[in-house]
């Protein structure tokens, strides 16, 4: 009897340390879609790729007027110029990514089974430059954002389908690490990504309407008014945004294209599976 009681208690304590997130990618997406569908029955799932503008008519009017004359078109032209410029060794970007620029954006992020790591588009741009003896772009803004944004614009309308191979435990572990990052509270403000972009999405944080996570990655790199006002040109990559978010909750940010943010991107982009690419875009 004592043994039985001990066994029951032991199994209970094991259950309590089992991660609450032992679900698959498909289950996670379905759960999020159901959560948002219940919360905003009048907002179409596909419209969430427009972020907070899918939730507020006032914000949407401002956003649409900004898109009449997009502030990022000159930067897209620079991105195209980068694609058409050969490296000093005579190679082109096609040597790393293939000939068709419209078929690049949607391959990322993906799991590299050989190197056992998540690969991101911007990470691979830097890797390609290094492999060809070029000085790599800065990791989060400037030319890397222009180039990545132009590549994304070439893929507009394509459906996102980030694959997590369920038969590869390392890939599943990377996805789960990204999910844990997303749901973990961090920093002095003790806030998780999910606190703002799942549970409090649609509410205001100061003057900012918090966007839903679903659809977040469809439009990156983005041109943000805030980034433009802080002395830059407005453009930034997803990992720049991650760093900014972490810093806002007073957590120390991680290195762009490092393991933490790449795993986060793997999970984060997965949550937009089934939505279409609509990049770049304007955000406040």
């Amino acid at each position: 009897m004592k043994k039985n009681i001990f066994a029951i208690l032991a199994s209970g304590s094991l259950l309590s340390i089992t991660p609450a997130f032992a679900t698959t990618q498909a289950e996670d997406i379905a759960a999020l879609k159901a959560y948002f569908a219940e919360r905003w029955p009048n907002v179409k799932d596909g419209d969430m790729s427009n972020g907070a503008y899918s939730l507020s008519e006032d914000k949407r009017i401002n956003w649409e007027s900004m898109r009449d004359f997009p502030p990022y078109e000159d930067h897209l032209a620079i991105g195209e110029e980068i694609w058409n410029t050969s490296f000093k060794n005579g190679n082109t970007w096609a040597s790393c990514f293939g000939d068709d620029p419209s078929k690049i954006r949607n391959r990322f992020p993906h799991w590299n089974a050989r190197d056992k790591k998540v690969e991101t588009l911007e990470g691979n741009i830097i890797q390609c430059q290094k492999a060809n003896g070029e000085e790599p772009f800065k990791a989060k803004k400037g030319k890397i954002a222009y180039f990545s944004a132009w590549l994304a614009s070439q893929a507009n309308g394509q459906t996102i389908n980030v694959v997590v191979p369920q038969d590869d435990p390392d890939a599943v572990a990377a996805y789960e690490a990204g999910r844990q990052f997303f749901y973990a509270k961090r920093g002095q403000l003790n806030l998780s990504c999910a606190d703002c972009h799942v549970y409090q999405s649609g509410y205001y944080a100061r003057g900012n309407l918090l966007s839903p996570v679903r659809g977040h990655t469809t439009h990156f790199p983005v041109w943000r008014g805030k980034w433009a006002r802080s002395g830059g040109d407005g453009f930034g990559t997803l990992h720049r945004r991650y760093g900014g978010c972490n810093s806002q909750v007073r957590a120390k940010s991680f290195k762009a294209h490092g393991k933490e943010y790449s795993n986060l991107e793997y999970f984060h982009a997965s949550m937009s599976n089934g939505m279409t690419i609509n990049a770049p875009d304007y955000r406040e």
Partner: peptide
């Protein structure tokens, strides 16, 4: 506090 928080959030996941 940062260490304690990281340990407490080790198994963080969705609660919706």
């Amino acid at each position: 506090l940062g260490y304690q928080q990281a340990i407490q959030q080790k198994n963080a996941g969705p609660r919706h």
